[in-house]
Simulated assay, not measured.
Amino acid sequence: MIVTPSKVEVVAPVKVAEHKIHQFVQSKREWIVRALAKIAAKSQQHETLAPAVYGHGADIPYQGVSYKLTVRPTKLKKIKIEFSQEFIEFIAHVPDALMIHDHSAEIKEALIRWMKKESKSQVEQLVNRYAEKKQLFPQTIKIKTQKSRWGSCGIHNDIHINWLLIIAPPEVLEYVVVHELCHIKIRNHSAHFWALVAEHLPDYQSRRYWLKKHGSSLMMGL
């Protein structure tokens, strides 16, 4: 028996009577209900955090919260993104020439550029906060677009961080930065490594759990 969101498929020998197949399905009814519930829950976990259209009133995910997007015309030649601390919203200043056309894709690209820049700034602040405690100084810090990893530490102590972490709560980005810094000293995931992480972040396990639970949605990006 194969259960999908749209149908329940039963594979049976040709000679089996149809009423026997119906009886079999009825006998498995509770199991089918549980299977459908698991499929639905998994689907929700992989639901994208990004809006369908990047226009006025869209919800933009940032640091674990959704903020409204306000679109305003501007005399500038390219889109400028601003995060307003006063009104707690994102503002996309869109050139007049673009306002008469569909500018969703252009706003999305501008938001990604803004978030990558903001990611670099926040990661550098976190490195400055934690590196000195155990002399965990990276050679370089790079913000990357990665499809399957949140961060990495190269053999020359180059730290790479996935910019999508800027969408997650701040403590999750903090955990990944500390995680990679600790790899400068310990290259594996032994008990000694996790003890070093815990020296910096005693509650790292809850942050790690958040990433495991919501990582699939986060990885889908903007």
Rank of each mutant, 00 (worst) to 15 (best):
K185V: 03
W114E: 11
A50K: 02
K147C: 08
T70S: 13
H101Y: 11
F83P: 04
V197M: 03
Y62H: 14
K42M: 14
T4N: 00
I161Y: 09
S152G: 09
R208C: 01
E9I: 02
E18C: 10
C182I: 10
I186L: 02
Q44E: 09
W210M: 13
V3R: 00
S66K: 05
V178C: 15
Y54C: 02
L36A: 10
I107Y: 09
L136V: 03
V127T: 09
R113L: 08
F193W: 03
R34Q: 15
H156R: 12
V16Y: 05
P13E: 13
R187N: 10
K134V: 10
Q205V: 11
A12H: 09
E124P: 02
F137C: 10
A50Q: 08
K147T: 04
H156M: 15
H200M: 14
W194Q: 01
E174M: 14
P95M: 06
Q122D: 14
L211H: 03
S119T: 05
I155L: 15
I81V: 09
E82L: 14
I155W: 04
H56K: 15
I91L: 14
A110H: 03
T140H: 13
A105M: 05
H103L: 12
H22N: 08
V71S: 07
Y67K: 03
I184W: 12
V65N: 10
I143R: 01
K15T: 12
L111G: 00
H160A: 05
E82I: 14
E171N: 09
A92E: 01
F24T: 06
E180C: 01
E180K: 00
V71N: 05
S27F: 12
G57R: 08
V25C: 13
A40P: 06
S216F: 04
A40L: 08
L49R: 01
I161R: 13
L201G: 14
K212F: 01
P51D: 08
L36I: 03
L181K: 06
A37D: 02
Q135E: 13
I155V: 06
I79P: 04
L165Q: 07
P169A: 09
M220S: 11
I39E: 11
A12G: 06
M1T: 05
C153R: 00
I100W: 08
K116C: 13
R207F: 10
Y204M: 13
K80E: 11
R207S: 15
A131S: 11
V25S: 05
T74N: 07
V172W: 04
F24R: 04
D102Y: 01
S104D: 14
I141C: 14
K134M: 05
Q139G: 06
K142H: 11
M99K: 15
K68N: 10
D96V: 06
A41G: 10
S217I: 13
P169K: 02
Y62Q: 06
S43L: 06
L218Y: 10
V65R: 12
R29N: 15
L111Q: 01
I143G: 02
L36Y: 07
E180P: 00
E171Y: 15
V53Y: 07
S6V: 12
A52I: 09
L126E: 09
P73R: 13
D203N: 08
A105C: 14
H19R: 15
R129M: 11
Y62S: 09
T4Y: 00
Y62L: 11
E199V: 08
K80R: 10
V123P: 01
S152I: 00
W210Q: 07
A37H: 01
F193D: 01
K20F: 12
A105G: 12
Q135T: 08
I143N: 01
W150V: 00
L98N: 05
E199F: 12
N162P: 07
